[in-house]
Simulated assay, not measured.
Amino acid sequence: MKFQNSGYYYLAFLVLAFIGFWPSYFSKFFDGTADFSQYFQFHVGTALLWVAMLVIQPLLIQRRKYELHRTIGKFSYFLVPILFISVLLLANYRISPELEFVGPEFWIPFKDLLIFSFGFGVAIWFRNSMPIHARGMIVAGFALSEPVMVRVMYNVLGLKGTYPYILAISVVYVILLVLIFLERKENQGRWVFPVAFSIFLLVHIIVISGFNPDFWERFSRWFISLPLT
C-alpha cells in the first residue's frame, strides 16, 4: 500500500476537529467568552502544527518534493518535544490534586503520548524505509483521533454518558482493522498497525476498567504536585 494520499484524509480530519471543537472552543472566540488558559492555547497551537505536518508531508511525497519533505521532517524533532511538553503542562494545570484518585485522570493524556511515541518512534527509526515510515506517521496521527471523535460525539451529536466514548474509540478500531485487512498481503511494514491496535486495546482496557495500581497513583500525584503551572 502507498500512503501518499493520506494528507487528504488528515485534511478531512482537521475539518472534523474544527467541527468537534467548535461548540467548546472555536465558537468562544466569536461570542466573547473565550477564557482559555495559556497552557490550553499552547497545546492547541502545537497540535495544529502537528496536524498541518501530517497534511503537508504526504502531499510533498506525492509531488516528488523529497528534499522539502526531509527539511520539514527535521522540524518534527523540535515540534514533537514541544507537543509533549504542552500535553504535560496542560495535565499539570487541569488535574486537581484534591481528587480522590489522580491516576485515572493522568492516564488519559499519558496514554495518548504512549501511542504517539510508538508511532513517531517507528517513523523515525525506519525513516529510510518509506513503507514503515509512512505507517508510523499514520499511527502517530491516530493518537490525536480519540480527543476529536469524543468531542464530535458529545459536542456535535449531543450524546450522553459513557456510551459515546465507547463509540468514539470504536471508530479508531474499525479504521485500524480495515487497514490491517487491506494490507494483509504486504511485504513491508504490515506489523505496524497490528502492534498499534494492541497498544490501543491495552490502554483502553485500563481506562474502561479503572485500573489504577498504587505505583501509578503515587507517580501521578507526584507529577501533579510539581509547580509547573
Rank of each mutant, 00 (worst) to 15 (best):
P58N: 14
R221D: 14
P194A: 15
P131W: 09
L228Q: 05
G119H: 05
E183W: 09
V148L: 10
N212Q: 13
V15T: 00
A12M: 09
P194W: 05
K160Q: 08
D31N: 14
D214F: 15
G136L: 08
G210R: 13
D112E: 09
V148R: 01
R94P: 00
L11H: 06
P131K: 09
H204D: 15
P194V: 14
V171W: 04
L79V: 07
S86K: 03
F26P: 02
W125F: 15
V55L: 12
L68R: 07
Y66G: 02
L202I: 14
I180C: 10
P109A: 07
R184W: 11
S37R: 01
S6E: 07
V51S: 07
L11C: 11
W191K: 12
F193V: 10
R94G: 02
Y93Q: 02
M137W: 08
I115A: 06
D214T: 15
F78E: 11
L144P: 01
L226M: 15
Y173I: 12
A143R: 02
M137K: 08
L177P: 03
S24K: 09
I61T: 07
R218M: 15
I108G: 09
E146Q: 11
H43S: 11
A91P: 01
L68D: 08
A12I: 08
I175T: 11
V171I: 13
S225N: 15
L202E: 05
Q4W: 10
I175V: 15
E100C: 10
I82E: 06
K74H: 10
F13C: 03
F29E: 06
F181I: 09
S6N: 07
Q41K: 10
Y163V: 06
L167G: 02
E217Q: 12
S220Q: 07
P97M: 14
M153R: 01
L83K: 03
L89S: 03
A140C: 14
L60D: 04
V80R: 04
L167R: 00
F101G: 04
A17Q: 02
P194I: 12
V87R: 01
R70N: 10
S170L: 12
V203Q: 05
K111G: 02
L114Q: 02
L11V: 03
S117P: 05
M130W: 03
L179S: 08
T33E: 08
L182H: 04
R127K: 14
Y77L: 15
F26E: 03
E146C: 05
P147Y: 09
F78Q: 08
L228T: 02
T71D: 10
V171P: 01
I224A: 06
E98A: 14
Q57W: 12
S37H: 04
I72R: 02
T33M: 06
S198F: 13
S24N: 09
P131T: 11
R64E: 13
M130I: 05
K2G: 02
V15E: 00
F110E: 01
S198I: 15
E146F: 13
M1Q: 05
Y154N: 06
I169C: 11
W216Y: 10
I199E: 06
M149K: 02
V87H: 03
I180Y: 07
A134M: 14
N155A: 04
I95T: 08
W125R: 13
E98L: 14
E98N: 13
A91Y: 00
F223S: 06
W50V: 11
A17E: 00
D112L: 11
G158Q: 00
